[in-house]
Amino acid sequence: MGPLGDAQLTDLAAAATVAEGGQGTVFRLARPAGTLLKLYHREVAVLAGELARLIDLPARETVATRTAWPSGRVFHRGRCVGLLMPAAPDRFTTTIAGRPRLLELQFLLYPRRAMWAELALPTEDERRGLAAGYLELFRELHHHDVVLGDVSMRNLLWTLSGGPGVFAIDCDGFRVAGRPPAVRPADTAGWADPAGPRELTLDTDRYKLALLTLRILLGNHRVTPEEVRGKPLLRGRLGPALSLLAARAAEPGRRPAAECWLAALS
C-alpha cells in the first residue's frame, strides 16, 4: 500500500500549465483547488518507494506550511510518473511586468534591474528575518535527519507580506540521510560543496546553508565563506559572530549547524 494521496493520472484533470522545469512539467489541477501535479519528463528516473517514504515522513507535519511537500504519487500504467503537491500560497507570488511571478530567492541576490523595478525588496532587518526563516526550516528538517541536497535560487521563495516568511518548492530531491532521493536533484552551479563529496550529507547541506545565509545578508549571489574569510570589508559588514561562523563553514566537517547561525543572528 502506498500513501493515501496516491492517484492515477487518468483520474486527474489539469486546468493549466504552471511551468516547465528541468525534470518535469507542473500543472494546476481543476480539483482539488490549490493542488499541483508535477509530471516527470520521460527520461527522469523516479524511485517510487523512496517517494512514498518521503511523503509519509513525520518531518512533513512540522514544515507543512513552509514547503510544497509531496502529498501523493501519480501512476500511469503501473509506473510512477509524477507527484501531487500544494501550490505555494499567494503571498509568495507577485506581479512583475504585468505577469504573476513567484518571489524567488534570486531577486534577493542580484542588483535591481529595470524589469523588476516595482518589486519591494527587503530592508536589512527584513533580510535577517528571511535568513532566519530559511535557517529555521533547515534546522527543522535536519532535526528530522532530512537532507535537502540542492539549494537553487528558484526553488526557495520568500515574502514580506505578513512579516518575513519563506517557502520551499521542488522537494522531491529531499531524502532521509543515508537514503537515495526519490529523484536526483540538480547540483546547482555556484552552490556546490567545494569539498566535492560523493554523497550529499548534512555537512554539504550546512555548507549550502552558509552560502544561503551569507548571500542573503550581503545581497550577493556568489559570495562564499572562503571569500568572507579573506575579506575584512565583508567581515566588517557581517560582524564578528557571523564572520566566525563563515570561517568555520569554509572547513569541511566543522560547518556550523543552523542553530549556530540563528544564535548569531538574534
Binding site: 512583475i96 511586468a97 505577469r99 534570486q106 542580484y110 534591474r113 524589469m115 523588476w116 549571489h221
Partner: peptide, 9 residues
C-alpha cells in the same frame, strides 16, 4: 522577454 527579463540568474 518577460520570462527571461524577470529571471535575474
Amino acid at each position: 522577454h518577460a520570462a527571461v527579463g524577470t529571471d535575474p540568474v
